[in-house]
Amino acid sequence: MGLVNASDDTIYGVGLETKDTESILHYNETIDGLPPERLVAACRSFQSQLDAKRVRVKNLGAGKMEIHFIQEDPLDEALPIFEPSPLNLNIMSVDVGRDADGETFKVKLKNASGLLLGGLPGGGKTAAASTFVLPLALAKDDVDMMIIDGKGGADWSAYENLVSKFISESTSFESVRDELVNAVQEMNERIQSNADVLGHSNFWSVSPETRRQAGVKLKLIVIDECQALFDMTGVNDKEEKALRNEIIRACTDLIKRGRSAGFFTIFITQKPTSESLPTAIRDNCALKISLRVSTPETEKAILGSSPDDAIDVPRATNIPLSRPGGAVAESENGERTEFRFYFFDENDIKNYLRQINYQSHNGM
């Protein structure tokens, strides 16, 4: 690999382990004059000689590393599904895909107030969101859902009969403002009443059975194409500006104070910029997910950071075009995970919902 001189006969604490689906370079002893960045770069240059599709680095601390040359990448496999993933009511989690280790990746709502999902136009944001929104929409005994589609259109039409509020007009700022202001009022009432009604001030600190008996559901708000509501660029009408500002204030309030009240807001955008996505909203989302993007600036607008100097940190800019549904998630503590969403086709969603509606109407 050219990391030491060809005439160097020193035995180093480095070994290559070969497996069926990957080879692992064990770097157990730091080599003087060999910084980790150079080692990783050399391994990436060397990967074709091991027939590896990609390289993944595990930092073990104290200068030790494992560098995995992966021949069969779990992220290259398409993951179609034909029915919703099960919902874990205790932690409000849904299996939404598979990570780089081939393990199930979950979206968990418990003890959080929001999620941001961003990506380029046509990148599959609505399809990705459906993997975790549909199981929640079907849990009507435990979840009260509102959908606001800032773009308008038919992307969310299959959900209209599943949710308590459905707004699909990008110009209906008054309706959006009114619903969000009402949500803030309900949140404030819950903050005051949760201790008496649930026996605990935090919605998430009691069991699903306790919440169900008290009639207190998770309030889930989905705002698709949120930039259509937030972005002031080119808006000159004073009344419209005032409405947009009220919408932004309500969303900011919900995301900052909604956790203990049992309010969770999902923001979806195809225009992740500081103008279209207020940083106070982005930074208060416990989970941020970026589908493929083309620039570090766009990635930073979604995830809140772009770790240029870190070794082998998953980057949304590195997701290949050949991997629809590929994504990078960043948790509240800044940890990143690369994964691929399951794909639930919108026509399959409609067929599934028609089937369960037929069964419920016929007592099956």
Rank of each mutant, 00 (worst) to 15 (best):
Q47L: 08
K165W: 03
L50H: 05
D95G: 06
I81H: 09
D142V: 07
N194F: 01
I356G: 10
D32P: 02
P296V: 03
V40C: 10
Q213H: 11
P324N: 03
V313T: 10
S157E: 12
Q270C: 01
I221H: 02
S48T: 14
I31H: 02
Q270P: 04
K58S: 15
K106Q: 15
E338G: 06
L16R: 08
K217G: 02
R249W: 10
S164W: 04
K53E: 15
E160P: 00
A214H: 13
R354K: 14
D20W: 06
R56C: 06
A228R: 08
G97Y: 01
L39V: 06
F69N: 07
I91D: 15
T252N: 12
L198V: 04
H200D: 15
Q47A: 12
L303Q: 09
T317K: 04
E22C: 08
M92G: 03
S48R: 13
L34Y: 03
E174C: 01
A228K: 12
I167P: 02
V197A: 03
V216Y: 03
D178G: 01
L254G: 01
I221E: 03
N111H: 07
N284F: 00
S168D: 15
L291M: 05
E72V: 15
A137P: 04
E275R: 09
I281S: 00
T337C: 10
K238Q: 11
F230G: 00
K256V: 05
L34Q: 07
L134E: 14
T279K: 09
N90C: 10
C43D: 13
V293S: 06
D144G: 05
A129V: 00
V184H: 07
R315I: 01
F173T: 01
K288M: 01
L120Q: 14
P320H: 09
E189L: 13
D73Q: 07
N90S: 11
E330L: 09
I70V: 15
K165V: 04
R282T: 00
G363A: 07
L220H: 07
G13K: 12
S260P: 05
L243T: 05
P324S: 02
L180M: 11
L138E: 12
N28Q: 12
T265P: 00
C285V: 08
V313A: 11
V163W: 06
L220F: 09
L198G: 09
E83G: 12
E17M: 13
V55G: 09
N357F: 03
A280Y: 06
G122P: 12
E297S: 11
G334N: 09
P296C: 10
V163G: 10
D231Y: 11
R259G: 02
F82E: 11
A129K: 04
A261R: 14
I70G: 06
S48F: 11
V181K: 11
L3Y: 03
G150R: 05
S164I: 04
S306A: 14
M145F: 03
D283C: 03
I247T: 08
V57Q: 07
Q192T: 13
N90H: 13
D20V: 14
P84G: 14
I311M: 08
A139F: 05
A127M: 08
F166S: 07
S276E: 02
A250R: 06
S48Y: 14
D51H: 12
N182E: 10
P307H: 01
